[in-house]
Design a protein around this nucleic acid. Structure first.
Lengths: 344, 344
DNA sequence: GATAGGGACTTTACCGGTTAAGACAACGCT
DNA sequence: AGCGTTGTCTTAACCGGTAAAGTCCCTATC
């Protein structure tokens, strides 16, 4: 990959035009003291006339800031396209990065090991000033990696999974409990949950919380199914749950994301079951998708955009030297819509 | 944004350990001739032992390759989260980039002007080796920009919009025509289209093609509505189209993306109209979403993932010096599912 | 035996910035 | 007058690589 040669204007040209040294130009552009207002003006004028802006690569190499942050997502590419969560999360991250004239370096990887290698290469190569780590699993190798490299990162995930790293997280356990309590309060005794991929730490947390809540409420049934987060898997899981005969069939199903809930909704329709009369459905993540279905989907909603923004803000903090900390963001709250009601 | 200091191992350390000069290490790592096998081995061993990988920033500055490509998307962040298209497109792009150990620099921008500034800064700053330009509009300033900078780019859009730039595009006009013909063949005489944002070039192309097709087939009605691509807008548009009394009411609606079609589907349900008996719906882009609704959505489907991959491949070609060219990818094809049928 | 031609490395000059240290004039103070 | 400050700007080293030019030695050639 060779770059096409272009006559690029450098700091030297600006210095020459302003009649100063390149050091002076550097001082001016970094708003550092040691220059008279007059010279500063001349330098900025010269730069403007030449259309010059500092070369970020050189600036990075020279050891100052790095205005790129990394994000590697470890999920099959095709699956990702479908999940509104990430795109919304990214757009939240971007919204904060943009304010700092910072860009996002994105890469899809196949395995955690591949991600570790990538993050390390990025960091050593000074490609990034810090990184956002997502989708934590138990004993995640990225905890050790970040510590070993001394790389500023923010871990998206529950502190129990992210070791000593600065983390931003939602209290999924509480949210799951709230969801189950709500359904129980409506009168449901047989509740099921279509969960995410078993490998993920947050899935495990939700699974445990669901079990506990069901036990606590002494529900008659509390089945859980693991999926890969895809709509197809959600549909399959729903179909298998709903084929049970009425007394055993769950009267309410909680989904781990909204795309699976949408799939579940259409499976119910396909099986001739009415929502919410015959079965109640409750989504998670609550993208706009939940408001576009009929009936609209009740959901455990949280502000994914704001979540991403908070992650980015926290990362800037870490880069600036803030000590490790745990930043909970608001727990997902129940937003009842048309897909939940008391069982018949 | 300051980088935390970390003892980084550099080419010098590797050179010292292997007992050679750093020039030799550079030769070895770039697979250039002029080194004996024995030395090469020693160098690689030393590098492995120290866990060294070339610093990409320095490599870039020294004027060789740049292994990052840019992508700026000009759409309100919140809207983006919802559109499966981009995430799938990006994952297609990524799939090819990954093979080349190349990363994607992503940024959301508010206006085309902002994008022009950003791309220019990226390019001048040698942050990127090339860029992917999307969402072309008539007289797009990015055409002149790319030519002025001599920056390798690939334009995603019809050649009539992308000037002399290398472009990758789908033949939307033909696809729209096929869609209308299909609906007409089913017996529909009143067909409507819920289109995308008026500013976009591809929207204009589809609008014109729709008009022409409707005229050619002498349809009784061929209304078109512009939206911002959001589900809400799609729902609004559908609602207004379907409130007309039966003789004037369209019996079929074509949508410019799938999210609006999903919204349309639920509006129909909400209004007590059955799909496809009372009104046929036809989506565009065909993400997995279309297979998750009930009824499933007929769609003009194209391989968005493959589209993204082709764009990335083409960009590599341009960077390697391929002349400008026009790369059509397969025209979206009609995939009939459950949401289209002859009108009653 | 002098010369040419390679192969295998090393030297050295960048790339385009940052930054610590140095130079120099003007100023205030004893 | 002599001297330490300040303020303003320049110098030069450095960041971590790349690549052209140079060095050195070994071998083939006339």
């Amino acid at each position: 990959m060779t770059a096409t040669p272009t006559p690029r204007v450098t700091i030297k040209d600006v210095a020459a035009r302003a009649g100063v040294s390149k050091g002076a130009v550097s001082l001016a552009f970094n708003h550092k003291p040691g220059l008279s207002e007059a010279t500063r003006d001349r330098i900025f004028r010269a730069a403007r006339e030449l259309g010059w802006a500092p070369n970020l690569t050189a600036r990075t190499l020279a050891g100052s800031r790095v205005d790129v942050v990394g994000l590697a997502i470890c999920r099959p590419a095709r699956l990702l396209g479908l999940e509104p969560f990430y795109m919304e999360f990214i757009s939240g991250v971007e919204s904060v990065l943009t304010e700092h004239s910072c860009s996002l370096l994105l890469r899809l990887v196949r395995t955690v090991e591949e991600e570790v290698g990538l993050q390390e290469a990025w960091w050593r190569g000074r490609q990034i000033g810090g990184s956002i780590l997502v989708d934590f699993r138990a004993d995640d190798p990225r905890v050790a990696m970040a510590e070993r490299l001394g790389m500023p990162v923010v871990a998206v995930g529950h502190p129990s999974l992210t070791g000593g790293l600065t983390s931003v997280w939602t209290d999924d356990a509480t949210a799951v409990t709230e969801a189950v309590r709500y359904l129980a309060a409506l009168g449901h005794r047989r509740v099921a949950r279509v969960g995410g991929a078993a490998g993920f730490g947050h899935t495990a947390i939700r699974t445990a919380a669901f079990d506990e809540a069901a036990r606590g409420l002494e529900l008659a049934g509390a089945l859980q199914v693991a999926t890969d987060f895809s709509g197809e898997a959600g549909a399959r899981a729903t179909r298998s749950l709903l084929t049970a005969a009425p007394p055993d069939r769950p009267t309410a199903i909680v989904y781990d994301n909204d795309i699976m809930a949408v799939a579940g909704l259409s499976v119910a329709a396909e099986m001739g079951l009415r929502v919410p009369e015959d079965v109640s459905l409750l989504a998670w993540d609550d993208s706009q998708l939940c408001r576009l279905t009929h009936p609209t989907l009740s959901a455990m909603s949280h502000d994914v955009h704001g979540f991403g923004a908070e992650v980015a803000r926290t990362l800037f903090g870490v880069i600036m030297g803030d000590g490790a900390g745990s930043h909970p963001v608001p727990t997902p709250v129940l937003t009842p819509r048309g897909s939940t009601a008391p069982p018949r």
